[in-house]
Nucleic acid binder design. Sequence first.
DNA 1: GTCTATAGCCTGATAGAC
DNA 2: GTCTATCAGGCTATAGAC
Lengths: 198, 198
Amino acid sequence: MSKKAPIDTRGNIIDTAIPLFAGNGYSGVSVRTIAKLVGISAAALYHHFPDKQSLYLAAMEQAFADKAQAIIKTLTGPENAWGRLDAFLADFIQLMGEDADFRALLQRELLDGDDARLQLLAEQVFREPFEAVSVLMHEINPDIDSHLMAISIAGLVLFHFDSAPIRRFLPGGEQTHDQTDVVFEHIQSLLHQALSRD
Amino acid sequence: MSKKAPIDTRGNIIDTAIPLFAGNGYSGVSVRTIAKLVGISAAALYHHFPDKQSLYLAAMEQAFADKAQAIIKTLTGPENAWGRLDAFLADFIQLMGEDADFRALLQRELLDGDDARLQLLAEQVFREPFEAVSVLMHEINPDIDSHLMAISIAGLVLFHFDSAPIRRFLPGGEQTHDQTDVVFEHIQSLLHQALSRD
DNA sequence: GTCTATAGCCTGATAGAC
DNA sequence: GTCTATCAGGCTATAGAC
């Protein structure tokens, strides 16, 4: 594809920055720290990005890239509504469970993101799958507010992973409780009950 | 109660620090900024707290104080199980909806808290109500894993508020969708369906 | 494209007067 | 209990050599 597969310093910087920003937040990571981990000086980093904000934005875009597409496929598959719900749930839970950086960056954006960044995030990542989930919810049970239900599903999945650090100190908190298959089975049966039309 | 109701500088510092830490995170707030807002110098602040970490911890304890007790009352009330679930939901949603600082500090602790702080938070705030919810879940439907269900309820409630910043940019996002009564009605009917024994 | 050196500012924290 | 002055070091970002 590209001309000669040169050593991609810019890409290295972004890949190094993603877990750092995810773990420590924007103001918790210095340009020096990122540069040192990449193996270059801070001044060299400024050759690839005009400022820290731009680097952060590039790291975000990289971390969020292609997440939407993977989900949408299963949401618009050939199966019936319940089958698509299960397939979506499995994929969504799998994706969230394996990418802690994505979850952390999302939570940090919800806490600290300005309107411009949040709008970008909404339109380039969440809008399409969110709308597809809403449509699916309406198809399964039109009596339920599909927007509220889509939010509920996201909250359910995310919190089973995001709560892991504190669950260790709560009664009955077992290690299995944030394994993707355990979370899937729980949320699946919860939603099947909740969405079934009497 | 206390001796003479003196001007409580220490309390002022904490009350000033809470919304700042909630909004900007630990490393996003400087001691100088807090001091300036209180109306004293940074050096004066260090007369009341040995270091920034201690101030942060004191602010956390203040922000989380008494939250647990308010919830536990409704969980152990005289009503039947479904009545207690509804009462708990109403109180929990009300409490989370009105205290954005609490939610932000909790999310930030889940992201950045070390083991010691998380353990403190778990034991002094969440353990009791969490256990009470678990017991209630088991009473309502013993076929469901009560620990997973308690986590699910927390995730449901929290995310309906925490997602507000990005919901504005998603289709069908109306302002009413994070009003406490709308959230309550949605989660209540969702849980009634999900927990009912066939 | 990377380096060293550095400007200019902000940081947490302290010393000592009042 | 609060102040001014200050320290030592970290921060983002730039200048200029190679």
